[in-house]
């Protein structure tokens, strides 16, 4: 099986890797680039633990081939904190205890960030629908929703 050389941008940095055409973007991020913050829950698009953005669009990295990543701009959880400063969403997740085991958290943070980029002032229903593809077996979701709403409020105030 011949591998394909891929050059792309992850969290603003140019990276290269060799992808087996069958590998998903998730496989490539975790196994080639050692960016293991992006999690694998189901590999069938159901859980959202593998959420990343590609050219600004929120996707499941388990539903995209690594070879499709050529010349894209990919953002993962590793790019969320800047210069050692947690993103407001990350801080609010800690404040509200919006996580327990934490397995779903990177995907939910990436998804929530994509929501706030599109809609800085979502209502609760909008947050719940946007995050419907991010499963959490621990928290019961309520604290997650509150943390996202609170982070959104803070970010609107700061802007």
């Amino acid at each position: 099986m011949s591998k394909i050389h891929i050059t792309t941008k992850v969290n603003g940095e140019e990276v290269e890797f060799l992808a087996d055409p069958r590998d998903t973007l998730l496989d490539c991020l975790r196994d080639q680039l050692e960016l293991t913050g992006t999690k694998e829950g189901c590999s069938t698009g159901d859980c959202g633990a593998c959420s990343v953005t590609v050219d600004g669009t929120l996707v499941c990295s388990c539903l995209m081939l690594g070879v499709e990543a050529q010349d894209k701009q990919i953002e993962t959880i590793e790019g969320m904190a800047e210069d050692g400063e947690l993103h407001p969403l990350q801080r609010k997740f800690i404040e509200h205890a919006a996580l327990q085991c934490g397995f779903c958290t990177p995907g939910i943070l990436v998804a929530a960030k994509a929501l706030l980029a599109k809609n800085p002032d979502p209502n609760e229903t909008e947050v719940r629908y946007w995050l419907a593809g991010n499963l959490c077996r621990c928290t019961g979701y309520d604290k997650i929703i509150r943390a996202v709403m609170d982070a959104a409020a803070e970010m609107r105030g700061a802007a």
Partner: peptide
């Protein structure tokens, strides 16, 4: 069809 993530594709 699917979630926000699936809608992206």
């Amino acid at each position: 069809v699917g979630s926000t993530q699936v809608q992206g594709r």
